[in-house]
Amino acid sequence: MTGMVLLVCCGWTVLLCLSVQAYENIALHKPAWQSSTGLSGGIRLGAERAVDGLYKDLDGNGEECAVSHGGQTAEWRVDLGGARNIHHIVIHFETGKEVWDCPSPGYYGKNCSKECPQNCQDGYCYSVEGTCLDCKPGYIGPRCNQECPDGFYGKNCVKNCSLTCVVPGRCDRVTGRCLGGCQAGWTGDTCEKECLDRQYGYDCAGNCSLTCGDSGKCDKITGHCKGGCRTGWTGDMCDKECSAGVFGKDCAENCSMTCGDPGVCDKVTGHCNRSCLAGWEGDMCQNA
């Protein structure tokens, strides 16, 4: 959560107002304190006015700012209730006086004439030297002009590209998406997901053979069937029917030479496709 703070000065008087532009006001209505308190028309302009959410009238007598009394310096505090991340702070003088900081985010330098570096997070940079308050994902350095080194990506370049990218450790410096796809057996933008059952290969684009012994299950990288092949099929991926003359599990058995058409049988069952030779009988012509 982030907030924006406005400091307003009137002579030796310091006025502090809190403003929020597209960020949560984390100081709103929080306990506040200041080293001294000024008056306007007899009204105390205490520290709590800096966190009341009102900041349209920055005039010294506008009663919307906290005002200190006398001296060149003043101290103001707010209790945010714990450690918080403050994204942006803007400091102003009183309305009509010199501006301490650039009035519009995204600029820096003399007369606020220079644009902040393009890779600053949300376009914010320090108003004097132009160094970024934070960097967009994929960039590092004071001015966020350095891309993440090879193998790293994301905010502050602290995340490692996946080693399951098709080129291990090579990914988009902003998103971490693998360039060129995934290694065999993996899928997803960052190649963090293993192939589902019955899928294999690069980006899991291959389907395991339905003739695998354990129907449709195979090695997620190679596609080789697990548990061998269904009867009548052979090969690492069980994609080859038994050749003529053999049948059964892994095509390991020979068709009977006593089939009516010797050596020719059903590739799954081994049954002779025609009648048996004279003197033989049975499905496989095995009985004399």
Rank of each mutant, 00 (worst) to 15 (best):
D214V: 15
S36P: 06
W12K: 13
S104G: 00
A32C: 07
V128M: 10
N254P: 00
C132P: 00
D79F: 03
W33V: 06
K220E: 05
S19I: 08
G176T: 02
A22R: 12
S127G: 10
I221W: 07
H29N: 15
A66G: 10
L163C: 03
Q286F: 08
G169L: 07
G232P: 02
C157H: 01
G71E: 02
G123R: 03
C165Q: 01
D261Q: 13
S68E: 07
K97M: 12
A50Q: 01
Q72H: 13
G235P: 05
C212A: 07
L54G: 01
N85L: 14
C225H: 03
L45T: 04
V99N: 15
L45K: 03
T231H: 10
N25F: 08
L163W: 05
C208H: 03
C144V: 04
T187Y: 08
M284V: 15
T234C: 09
T231N: 15
E129R: 13
N273L: 15
L6S: 12
Q121A: 13
G151W: 04
V78Y: 02
K97Q: 11
C191H: 05
R177L: 05
C116P: 06
G279M: 09
P117I: 06
T73V: 12
Q118A: 12
D122T: 09
E147Y: 08
G279P: 00
N156R: 13
L15N: 12
N156Y: 13
C161V: 07
G130K: 02
I43Q: 10
Y139C: 05
P262L: 03
G3N: 09
G181F: 01
N25Q: 09
V5E: 06
C225M: 08
S162Y: 04
Y108A: 05
Q121L: 13
N254Y: 10
S162L: 05
H88G: 08
M1D: 15
V14K: 07
P142C: 05
D266T: 00
G109C: 07
L58M: 14
G206D: 06
Q72A: 10
Y23R: 11
L39N: 11
V158D: 11
